[in-house]
Structure formats: C-alpha cells, structure tokens
Amino acid sequence: MDIKAEKIDSEGKNKNIIYKRKTKMEKNIEIKKDNIFKKGVDKIKNIKLNRKVFAYPYILFMLLFIVIPLVMIIAYAFISDKTSSFTFENFAILAKDNVSLRVLWQSLLIGILTTLSCFVIGYPVAYVTSKMKSGGIIIIFFLLPMWVNFLLRTLALKELFNALNLSLGFGSLLVGMIYNHLPFMILPIHTSLISIDKSYSEAAKDLGASGFLAFIKVILPLTLPGIISGIIMVFIPTISSFAISEMLGGGEILLFGDSIHLKTLHNQSGVASVMSLIMLILVLISNVFISKVNKTSNSASLL
C-alpha cells in the first residue's frame, strides 16, 4: 500500500513538475507580450506627459514676476538707501523711529479690534442665514458690498459720519474697517457652516446636550477652519490697508500700509522693505497656521 501510494504520489509530482514547466513557459511568453504592451502604454503615457509642458511658460513667468519681486523685498531690507551696501541700518531706523513704533502699535490695535468685532457681528449673521431655507439668497446681500470698490464705500461711510455730525478719529476708523471687512468674515464662516451635516447637532441634542451646549461643543469647533480663514482675511488687509485711515482717521492715525506708502513716496525704500518684510512674514506664518488647522480638522472629520 505504502509503495503504491508513493508511486501515485511521485507520478502526481512529475505531473506537477511538467505542469509547472508549462506554466513557466507560458508566463515567459506572457511577459514578452507584457513588454510589448508596456512599450505601447509608455508611448501613450509620453504623449500624456507632454501636457506638463504647458505649465513651463507660467512657471517661468511666476519666477520672474512673483518670486524675484518678493526676493527684492528681502534684499532691499538689507541694502542701505544711501550707500547701497549691505547693512542692518534700515532695521535700526525703524526700531528707533517713535512714529513708526506708534504706527505698529496702532495697526495691531485696530487690526485686533476690527477682527474681533467682525467675528462678533459676522458669526451670528452666518449662523442665522445658514439655518434659513432661503439663506443662500439672503447671504448674497451681505456679501454684495464686497464687489463695490472700497474707496467708494469708505467715501460713502465718511458722508454718513458727516451727516450724523460725528467727528473723525479712532472710533470712526474702527467702524470704517469693520464696515469694509465684515463680508470677508461672514463668507468663510457661512461656507463652513452650511457644509456641516445637520445630524451632528441633532445627535448631540439626542444625547442630552442643550441647544447652547451642542453649539459650543459641536458646531463651533467644526467651523474653526472658516473662523480662522475669516480672521486672516480681515486682519491682514486691515493692518496693511492704506487710504481708509487717511479718509476716516481724521489725520491722526496711520496704519502699517499708510506708512509703507509714505515711505515709498519719500524714497525710503529700505525702511519700506523692512516693513513689507514684517507683513510678509506675518502672512506666511498665518498661512502655515491655517493649513495646519485645515489638516487636523480634515482628519478629525474623517474619524
């Protein structure tokens, strides 16, 4: 029995070996076929890859008109206006200049107050309209002023202050900044509010949270990316804007943007570059921050 069984077994093995050989040969042929096929695919792919070429002119354009000009700001910050040699004197001039320091302080104050007020006024608007049936149409009227030139809007507001017999100064400038930038806060918050699944707050309420608690614990964190992009869209333009403070500040207040404008008019491009560099760094930091928040909130929503 044992021998027989072995025989059958070995026969089976032999058959197996033959079979394996066969498949190997077949595979070889298949591989050859694959190679021919792959070459064909590569050819098609090469044609497809050629579309990359369309990006090259613009990449060159960006290098010339976006990257080099920004590098110029960095370079000019370290070049003396008088001797055109490498220097830190532009930074020193800015640090010693009392007017510039006051400008810095005032800009930050106006920027923070404007951003805070826009958030406090804008969030309820975004929230209420996101809950309404016709909210999609109503929100358009809040965003519409965005399309009217800011000089015209500021001029209009100045006339309103005149009509109400209010004197121009810090307060009127603050109102003007809020007036100009409110839509930029409402828009991103509204966008993130309408993308929230309704079942989230319903689930929170089902689990016993009150309406207010559900809002604080569920809705508010989910709109964080919208809030942060709103803050950046208000804060950066506010402190770097110019002309608005000239028109509404009553001649008392200068902001960062006004100061840069004046410095360029008076051929102090070195100091203007230092101030622009500070703005640029601020922009870059806030954008790194925003992309981080977006990433974490994306992974949170995936969970």
Partner: peptide, 19 residues
C-alpha cells in the same frame, strides 16, 4: 501661484515697485 492671492496687496505692490 497662491502667493499673490494670500499675500497682502500692499506687500505685492511694493514688491512690483522695487522689481
């Protein structure tokens, strides 16, 4: 490419001017 969009307009204007 996003630089001109996210950047402050004043900074872009200064960079063009210097360039």
């Amino acid at each position: 490419n996003q630089m001109p969009v996210i950047n402050s307009e004043t900074v872009m204007a200064v960079s063009f001017m210097l360039f």
